[in-house]
Design a protein around this nucleic acid. Structure first.
Lengths: 350, 350
DNA sequence: CTGAAAGCGCTTACAG
DNA sequence: CTGAAAGCGCTTACAG
């Protein structure tokens, strides 16, 4: 049984004043003598008064809820995003309604409409690849990539790539392989582009796994690149990095002694692997805070912009390098080529 | 600018009938001639009518929203849970408001209160270790473990453990190490207990990482167990399994040729590792569906139970084994002990 | 500084 | 089968 919480009138009756005054006092809009206001707040406290969100929403047209739309809730980065958004939203006084776009663009549109119908005041959208969100009736903050048009705020993926490139360059690597898995992803292009820029003096090669025949991931063999002299593998995600790392280790290539591997995003398993994964992390709380703030302002302003995508400043947040054990100095070539010392997989297994 | 959607009165005016009739027709409660009802629905469609959730909520006392409370949104299992709940809830016509208990029990209580204040009709709680949720004013469905008192529905963790135990036993392993990381966790005890039961005929040893001095995880060394003749490592989570697997690999122990490793939950990285991780998976959609259904019934019934924790049937869902490459036949001991063939870590790295 | 009154958009007894 | 009316619990001009 839902227990009926005390209402405004009850505290008004108790103090023998009008509900208008109680409302004014509680919302702190002034217009009430300090002394009375204090008494009102006190008895509200005593009675455990909690305003009815439905009533307020009906009256003001604002629900105090924002929607969070994600390309895929199953996404490994989701926990970080959701947690950061939830915290920022809670601090800003908003509730967070989630929506899963379940993969398809159509489902994303539907999810957005659903949220709108539920009356959210605004929404945070992490769009599907290249999606532009059509005009809905409320302000929208987009988190994607600084180079994406319409983006509100995001991490500086290019800068993050630069960090990892610089790190490997300083470690003395001379041949670095850059690995992406979707050539259409702006985020991935930014990350790899940054790394390439920092590695201007060294030999780099770039591969897109999406160009390989399926199952693409398993078709990629880091060993052949290793034999070709590549000593560092830069990937655009920790998942990819994990794959490369374990592939190498499984074949007897020790990391980081023989090869270095790096990822992106600092997923929860990154520090659980042995050796721990060097990765580049976004400052999610910062990104979320900026997005929520921008959204809040737009909501309070009544969001008059024609295109209701919100802008924020700064619109990009620096990434930080978590240098861990999976990256190390490039192997030294003393006399003979270390590449010939690798035990073969068969040898190890016997 | 939030565009004002058409209201009930508009469609009533257009058809020159009362809003009561429109409301009745739209809610399909009968009481309206079929012919009129059809016309009403049609013009509602034309006008793009969307009922105001706030108004309806204020009037009926039901918001059509449920809360999802999780011990820690950062939890690696969160994406699976959230996605399953979101889908089931959407199908049942509910919106999902998320709340993060941010680790502490106190924060969990606060999160729950927050949701209640926001007017949710009910909530799904994945409780913190051993937490019982106090009386709030709405039905609650708990997802924890079948052996947890007050549990509404969950996966059959014991049965899952049994599956992995059986699998290893069939593969011929004679010495199996069971690894948990929190001896107070009912879920973990269930999982390990099931495995032990299936391994009744083989030598098992059980270790709790929480009992080691910190940093506990890094203090645990699977190598010493391997040298002691253990050929299979059963962990209660994929994260733990990943750690053991990579630790072995890094030391030159090939998996599964020399040792087998298994996890739980089928986290997204489980199939990305090489060799892919054998793991036991929950049927999250089933669990979520049952929880949401039970909750829905309680909500519609007005939830008269004293303790408002909802019961469901079935209250446990079978787990399934995903047998992958990280588990294989126990190494054969032909003549000499294979344990002496392991290349030492130093040897490999040089 | 305080209060009386209207109204947000629905649903639901209650009449007819 | 259909409608007139009340009311869910607030907030907000508007008077006083």
């Amino acid at each position: 049984m839902k227990q009926r919480p005390p209402k405004l009138t009850e505290i008004a009756d108790r103090l023998d004043i009008s509900t208008a005054t109680v409302s004014n006092a509680l919302s702190g809009k002034g217009r009430v003598s300090a002394e009375l206001a204090k008494r009102i707040k006190q008895t509200a406290e005593e009675l455990g008064y909690v305003p009815s969100v439905s009533a307020r929403a009906l009256r003001t047209g604002m629900t105090g809820v924002i929607g969070l739309v994600l390309p895929d809730i199953g996404n490994p980065l989701f926990p970080q995003i959701a947690q950061a958004i939830e915290n920022a939203a809670t601090d800003a006084g908003f509730g967070v309604l989630i929506a899963d776009s379940r993969g398809s663009i159509k489902a994303q549109t539907e999810a957005i409409r659903h949220l709108r119908d539920r009356g959210v005041d605004g929404m945070i959208v992490v769009p599907r690849r290249g999606t532009r969100v059509a005009n809905i009736g409320c302000p929208v903050a987009m988190i994607d990539s600084p180079s994406t048009p319409g983006n509100t705020v995001s991490a500086d993926h290019w800068g993050g790539g630069w960090l990892i490139g610089e790190h490997l360059q300083k470690l003395g690597h001379r041949k670095v392989l850059l690995i992406g898995n979707n050539r259409d992803s702006i985020v991935q292009n930014d990350r790899l582009g940054g790394a390439r820029a920092a590695l201007a003096d060294v030999t780099t090669e770039q591969v897109w796994l999406d160009s390989l025949s399926l199952p693409s991931a398993s078709a990629f063999d880091p060993l052949s690149w290793y034999r070709a002299g590549f000593t560092a593998f830069v990937t655009v995600s920790d998942l990819q990095a994990l794959r490369v790392l374990t592939h190498l280790q499984n074949a007897g290539i020790t990391v980081p002694a023989m090869a270095s591997v790096s990822g992106f995003d600092d997923l929860m398993f990154a520090s659980a692997v042995i050796p721990a994964l060097t990765t580049v992390r976004m400052d999610m709380p910062a990104v979320a805070g900026i997005a929520i703030n921008a959204l809040k302002q737009a909501i309070e302003a009544g969001s008059t912009s024609p295109d209701q995508t919100v802008r924020a400043s700064p619109d990009r947040v620096p990434m930080t390098l978590a240098a861990r054990r999976s990256t190390g100095p490039a192997p030294q070539e003393e006399g003979e080529n270390p590449l010939f010392q690798i035990p073969s997989e068969g040898e190890l297994k016997s």
